[in-house]
């Protein structure tokens, strides 16, 4: 009997092996309206979408090496929506020819009892925050403008506190590995937001 041919490629549901291209920046609260105004003009015509999310970051510490990190997010204004679990790989800054930060990215929609499951697996929550803001799209480009809040009491999303007087602005795009040309589109888009916001590839290692 002959075995069926086996593919060497990883079994992919379409999302595996996707890379996230990312540019980050911030805008002060008093200039937020101007930025939103500009984004409304630049992005695809759609219903303005706002969100209030609670993100928890879980760590699994192994015997050696760096811990394994998973990010769980759920919507506070749409409690019935599925939770969102996200794995992000080490960001690569790359050279000057690539205009965006690149990191491996796996997104999964999960059920509401995710935290129990992760705890059973040995994950421990490292930190959490609430993000409140707006999301825009332009083709495959995603623009998120959000304000970050620190939780005053662990787990209690009711009482929160501003992290700063600025809003985080993230421009991101998902693409298969190696498609660095998408970063050109991102740079072009970022150029149009100047001088309101300067979106840059920020190496997180620099901020450790």
């Amino acid at each position: 009997m002959e075995a069926p041919p086996v593919t060497v490629l990883p079994v992919s549901g379409g999302t595996i092996n996707m890379m996230e291209y990312l540019l980050q920046g911030s805008v002060l609260d008093q200039s937020l309206e101007s930025l939103l105004h500009r984004l409304r003009g630049l992005c695809d015509n759609m219903e303005p979408d706002t969100f209030v999310d609670h993100e928890m970051v879980f760590l699994l510490k192994g015997q050696q090496g760096s811990p394994f990190i998973l990010r769980a997010r759920h919507s506070l204004d749409r409690p019935n929506a599925p939770w969102h679990l996200r794995y992000l790989g080490q960001p690569e800054v790359g050279d000057k020819s690539r205009h965006a930060l690149v990191r491996n990215c796996v997104d999964v929609a999960v059920s509401h009892n995710l935290t129990e499951f992760l705890s059973e697996m040995g994950f421990r929550m490292d930190h959490e925050f609430v993000a409140k803001g707006h999301i825009f799209r332009k083709g495959a480009l995603k623009v998120v403008v959000c304000k970050l809040y620190r939780l005053l009491l662990p787990g209690n999303t009711e009482s929160t506190e501003n992290l700063s007087l600025s809003n985080l602005v993230e421009l991101s795009m998902l693409a298969p590995a190696g498609q660095d040309t998408v970063s050109d589109d991102m740079r072009n888009f970022a150029e149009q937001l100047k001088p309101l916001v300067h979106l840059e590839k920020i190496d997180p290692k620099r901020l450790m």
Binding site: G25, S166, H198, I202
Partner: peptide, 18 residues
């Protein structure tokens, strides 16, 4: 000024490392 680079760094550090 419409943005503050220090705030950008603080926000990114918060999102990435908490």
């Amino acid at each position: 000024p419409t943005f503050n680079p220090a705030d950008t760094n603080a926000l990114v550090a918060a999102v990435v490392f908490g």
